[in-house]
Amino acid sequence: MLTFAAAVFFLIITPGPGVMTTAGFGAAYGFKASLRYLVGLFIGTNLVMLAVMTGLAAVILSVPWLRNVLMFASVAYLLYLAGRIAFAGAKVAFMEAKSPPGVLGGITLQAINPKAYAVNTSLITGFDYAPDAFLFEMISKALIMNIIWIPIHLAWLWAGVSLHKLNLSDRTQRTINILMALSMLGVVALALWSASRGAG
C-alpha cells in the first residue's frame, strides 16, 4: 500500500493538463476564482477513476474511432485552455478572458484528459495489494488517491496565486502566462506522441 501511495504521489505531481491549468489560472485570476475550476477537476478525476474501476474506460477506449474523437477533443480543449492562460494577463489579447472556466470546465478537462486516464489505469490495474478483497482495494485506492490529489493540486494553485500576489508588471505576468501555456502545449505534444506510438 505504501508503494502504491508513493506511485500516486509521483504520478500526480508531475506536470499534466490538470496541474498546469490549476497553476496557470491561479496566476492569472487568483485563488477564489480558480477554486471553482479546481473543484471541477476533483469531480472529473473521480469520475475518470470510477470509469477505470468499472471497466467503462477500457470499453470506450477500445473503440478506435471513439478513442480518436476523444483525443481530438482533448487536444482542442487543451489548446483552448492554453490560450485562456496565455492571454489572461495581456492588455491586448487574442481572446478576452475575464475568469477561468468554472466547475464544468474542470470536469470537462478531466473527462478528455489523456493523462487522467493513463494515471488512473496504471494505478488501479498496476498495484494488486489486496487481490482477495476487490472492494476494499478499490475503496482504499480511491481514498489514497484523493488524499494525495487534494494537497498537490492546492499546492499548485497556491504556487500560481503566489505569482499573482506579487503584483508583477503586465509584461512579466503575460510572460509567465505564456510560459505556462507553452508548458501545457508540451504536455499536448507528449500526449499526441504517446497516442501515435500506441496506435503504431
Rank of each mutant, 00 (worst) to 15 (best):
L2W: 02
V8L: 14
V8K: 08
V19A: 14
M20Y: 07
A23P: 02
A23F: 00
A23W: 02
G26N: 08
G26Y: 05
A27E: 04
A28S: 13
Y29Q: 11
G30E: 00
F31L: 15
K32Q: 11
L38D: 08
L38N: 14
L38Q: 13
V39M: 14
V39T: 12
G40W: 01
F42L: 12
T54K: 10
G55V: 13
L56K: 04
V59G: 00
I60Q: 02
P64T: 12
W65V: 15
L66E: 03
L66D: 10
N68T: 15
V69N: 04
L70A: 12
M71N: 11
V75W: 06
V75D: 05
V75C: 13
A76P: 08
Y77K: 11
Y80V: 06
L81E: 05
I85L: 08
A86I: 06
G89D: 04
A93Q: 07
F94A: 13
P101M: 13
V103A: 02
G105M: 07
G105Q: 00
G105I: 02
G106L: 10
I107M: 09
I107V: 14
N113E: 01
P114H: 08
A116S: 02
A118M: 10
V119I: 14
V119P: 03
V119N: 04
N120H: 06
S122A: 14
I124N: 12
T125Q: 08
Y129M: 10
A130V: 01
P131T: 11
D132M: 04
F134V: 15
E137P: 00
M145D: 09
I147T: 10
P151I: 08
L157K: 04
L157W: 05
A159Q: 03
G160A: 09
K165Q: 02
K165D: 10
L166Q: 13
S169G: 14
Q173A: 11
I176T: 00
M180V: 12
L182W: 10
L185M: 13
L185A: 14
L190H: 01
L192V: 15
W193F: 13
S194C: 05
S196W: 07
G198V: 07
G198E: 11
G200V: 11
